[in-house]
Amino acid sequence: MYRVMIIDDETSARRLLQVSVDWQSFDMELVGEAASGIEAINIIDDLRPDIAFVDISMPFMNGIEFTQIAKMRYRDLVIIILTGFDDFEYARQCIRLQVVEYMLKPIVRQELTEVLTKIKENLDKYNTRTQEIGPDITPSVIGQITQYLRENFTDSSINLTSVAQQFGFNPSYLSRKFKQETGESFVEFLIKCRMERAIGLARTSMKMFYTANAVGIPDPNYFGRCFKKYSGISYSEYVSLHTSQ
């Protein structure tokens, strides 16, 4: 079954895509969504989509910027650019980035069905998914990787694929071995490193925007969600709690 991801800063647009199609009839499943390109880059390694719907106009990292990064790291990823009429010529810059389709908003169900039919036919015919090959990963190598993450988590470009390439492993293989050895997914460990630093900075009353950049998550909205999930309260609440003590 082909895995589908939706990347759009408009909640209503993401919901419309979710309900407009009988995904199973195309042998597809929705595996996740993101409200910005930066959030997508941070979670795409865990989701491992085959297909991504990408809005061209998003804050902090627009659709073209996301596509440039994604196509360098995931050559087989099928990208469908979502664009408003006024942005259509701008969207055509993605031609050189091997974007498969462009769709105008608001999305028309019939057009979406036609696009998905064509994509499924192409994937069925030309599916060249990477076979999982590579040397065995020992606990000592996982230790080297966790240490590397502790020392470099402030780099916002770090993700599973870039680390796997650096250490010479297949990303999917590394993902499974990392979870087996540490009990946490790669993304969970990386977020933990970032949030531990963020909590330290919050105690100094640093503004959230600066903390987000300092820990490698320059999208403050995504950072805010990560911080609340990790600490149980919002960044501003955490700052207020510790400055009042």
Rank of each mutant, 00 (worst) to 15 (best):
V108Y: 08
V108A: 05
R109E: 14
Q110C: 02
Q110R: 13
E111H: 10
E111K: 12
L112K: 08
T113K: 14
T113R: 14
T113C: 07
V115H: 08
L116G: 05
L116C: 07
L116N: 06
K118D: 12
I119D: 00
I119N: 02
I119C: 04
K120H: 14
E121G: 06
E121L: 12
E121H: 12
N122Y: 14
N122A: 11
L123N: 06
D124R: 13
D124W: 08
D124N: 15
D124H: 10
K125A: 10
K125W: 08
K125D: 09
Y126C: 04
Y126M: 03
N127G: 11
N127K: 14
N127R: 15
Q131W: 10
Q131A: 12
Q131V: 13
I133H: 13
I133L: 13
I133T: 12
G134W: 07
G134K: 12
P135Q: 13
D136T: 11
I137L: 09
I137W: 02
I137P: 04
I137T: 03
T138H: 12
P139W: 01
P139L: 01
P139H: 06
S140P: 01
S140N: 07
V141H: 07
I142Y: 05
I142D: 04
G143S: 06
Q144P: 03
Q144M: 11
I145G: 00
I145H: 01
I145T: 00
I145P: 01
I145D: 00
T146D: 09
T146R: 09
T146S: 09
Q147K: 10
Q147D: 12
Y148Q: 02
Y148H: 11
Y148P: 01
L149F: 01
R150P: 02
E151S: 08
E151F: 06
N152P: 04
N152Y: 00
N152K: 03
F153G: 00
D155S: 06
D155C: 04
D155H: 04
S156F: 04
